[in-house]
Amino acid sequence: MTLLTIENLRVSFRTEDGVVQAVDDVSLTLDPGEVLAIVGESGSGKSVTGLTVMGLSRSPNARIEGSIKLRDQELLTASDDQLRKIRGNDIAMIFQDPMTALNPVHRVGDQIIEQIRAHNPDMSKAAARDRTVDLMERAGIPRAAERIRSYPHEFSGGMRQRVMIAMAMSCSPAILIADEPTTALDVTIQAQILREIKKLGEENQTAVIMVTHDLGVVADIADRALVMYGGRVVEEGSLDEIFYDPQHPYTWGLLGSITRLDRERPHRLPAIPGLPPSLLNAPKGCHFRPRCPFEFDKCTEVPALEQRGGEPGHRDRCWLTPEEKKEKRVVDGQIGLRTEGTVIA
């Protein structure tokens, strides 16, 4: 049975400058135990999607439409109190910056115990503490029995993220949403933290939504990936499909932007020219159109996310024919995005 189903999710925020359409028609499904990556650059709507699942983007200025179902329960119409009981218990979240995500004036142990007791009011303090020590040990924090009395500033960034992971796993959630959990960490720590998330996810049968802009992270731990651009999902597929048979020019650009040790050193770091669209005043039709070298008259219409050239389950939003895609994505024998002036490969 599908664990999480998002259908036609649209999230917009009223701001002083106008309405920002942060998430524009996103649909996805998540199976138990699956690791789904949501990839995209800043402003692509990936974080807002995660926060909306948690009910944390609710505000008087936000307009949220569509449907988010946890098993059979609709979350968008759930009361604040129903949502509160789901948060941290059925769906947990890890944030990007572990330096600011923990309250500096409370001991780390207390911050985890607090969550356990919020969802298990009958559990004794001592039992919650034992559970916290166990969780922190399993998240790879040495001498956890002593460290529960430490304050966040006494931990390194990596250790704080381990505390966040222990906290997120404290009620054995069915879904863990990790919002760029390794972005703020040293490269050497990143792999450890990812391994920890994957290991604990498998142990607890927790499905993971990994929000990231790092294709390396996706390749490391994901089963399936969604590529987001300008608030929309532009491509969805298995890891192999996204990396070896990408259908959308934006995905080609992302793949072409990876610098690789096994290739000749490029003269300049490859990048997709132009800027991501302003969601305040998004371009008509395909959001990638202004940066896409293959734009043609049909692109002013929004293409639906559907199976076009790939296997079943591999869907994209690009009007090019499958044959054109196969031909155009190849740059110097690799997948990339060829643009005027700069070649990205």
């Binding site: 509160r84 948060r87 941290g88 944030f95 309250n103 906290m167």
Partner: peptide, 9 residues
């Protein structure tokens, strides 16, 4: 935000 994400009242 973390405190809210934990499901505290």
């Amino acid at each position: 935000r973390t405190a809210r994400a934990k499901g505290l009242t």
